[in-house]
Computed example of a mutant assay.
Amino acid sequence: MTFPVGINVGQFFSGPPPRWGERVRRIEDLGFDGIWFAEAYGSDVFTPLAWCAARTTRVRLGTAVAQIPARTPAATAMAAATLDHLSGGRVVLGLGASGPQVSEGWHGVAFPRPLARTREYVGVVQQVLARERPLTYDGEFQQLPSPGGTGLGKPLRSSLHPLRPSLPIQLGAEGPRNVALAAEIADGWHAMFFSPHDDERYRQALAAGFARRPGGRPENFEVVATVPVVVDGDVERAADRVRPDLARYLGGMGARGANFHHDVFARRGHAELAARVQDLYLRGEKRAAASAIPTAVVEDVALIGPARKIREDLGRWESTVIDSIAVQGLPDDLDAVAQALLA
């Protein structure tokens, strides 16, 4: 094993997973590198990380990702800086634009021009964390102090001295322009549905972003991929555990014509398959949508099967731009996953 492996718990559905406290401590005891959380329109991303910070001592604590429309950039910087103090400097702040359904339907924030919004948002977060001067920003989407209201707003400097002014910021990105933006303005890229077959395309997107960055690629830039992992002696049975989730992302996340996960597979040469899965899923035929996904497509983005096969397949990832992986979801068989990936 040449790179670190963490666990991306994702978000809570209905409630926290069974034996939650025990399993969090087990993640650290087994030697996993980090614990990551996501958010959509239910559980938030910072509260469970704070809970984990109180019960662990070593693992990194990452947002994968914190939604940009969910909070002002200053509020996000406050949460990350506070948690970084409480955890002893273990936070990785992953940020993402979400999608139009959640941004506009749940948070009430307009979605158009997500790259420009992300650029300004990250700029404000970086200013807050750097704490070099009182906060001001004159952008299209971020104006600080606000030009409206009472007119009494004034530039402020964080009263909290960040433990690490260089607290790492990663961008969750799937499209080439978003990946290039991560390389240009952030400290890392958190990938989803990464395929080793697309490595050269991603290298080109990263290179384009680094070319726009003063000084080029920083030494500490990290590429993390969230990857489904299922340890099972039967490959088909393992694939069946991944298919429903893939179908949900390809078919049901976002709207028709505005599903960025769907677009990843279309760019990869699976446009016809992605369209079929989406049609089935949106008609409510979720089982048929999952069954339509070939095992080879599952294996392209996931590590499945016996432990020995997983270790062999992992070699394809180790030769790509990926620096570390985060296992998607909280596995029931944490020990088996650790033996397959950390041995």
Rank of each mutant, 00 (worst) to 15 (best):
W20N: 09
W20P: 12
G21Y: 14
G21D: 05
E22W: 02
E22G: 09
E22V: 02
E22I: 01
R23G: 07
R23A: 10
V24F: 01
R25K: 07
R25E: 03
I27H: 11
I27R: 07
E28D: 05
D29I: 07
D29K: 08
D29E: 09
F32N: 12
G34N: 04
G34C: 14
I35S: 04
W36N: 05
E39K: 01
Y41R: 04
Y41L: 14
G42I: 13
G42W: 03
G42H: 07
V45L: 05
V45H: 02
L49E: 06
L49K: 05
A50C: 11
R55V: 15
R55S: 04
T56N: 05
V59E: 11
V59K: 13
L61S: 14
G62Q: 06
T63H: 10
T63P: 02
A64W: 08
A64T: 14
V65R: 04
V65H: 09
A66K: 14
A66H: 15
T72C: 05
A75H: 08
A75Y: 15
A77E: 01
A79N: 00
T82C: 07
L83I: 05
L83Q: 13
D84E: 12
D84Y: 06
H85G: 13
H85P: 08
H85M: 12
L86I: 12
S87V: 05
G88W: 09
G88S: 09
R90E: 03
V92W: 03
L93C: 08
L93S: 10
L95T: 05
A97S: 02
S98I: 11
P100D: 11
P100H: 14
P100Y: 06
V102H: 01
V102N: 03
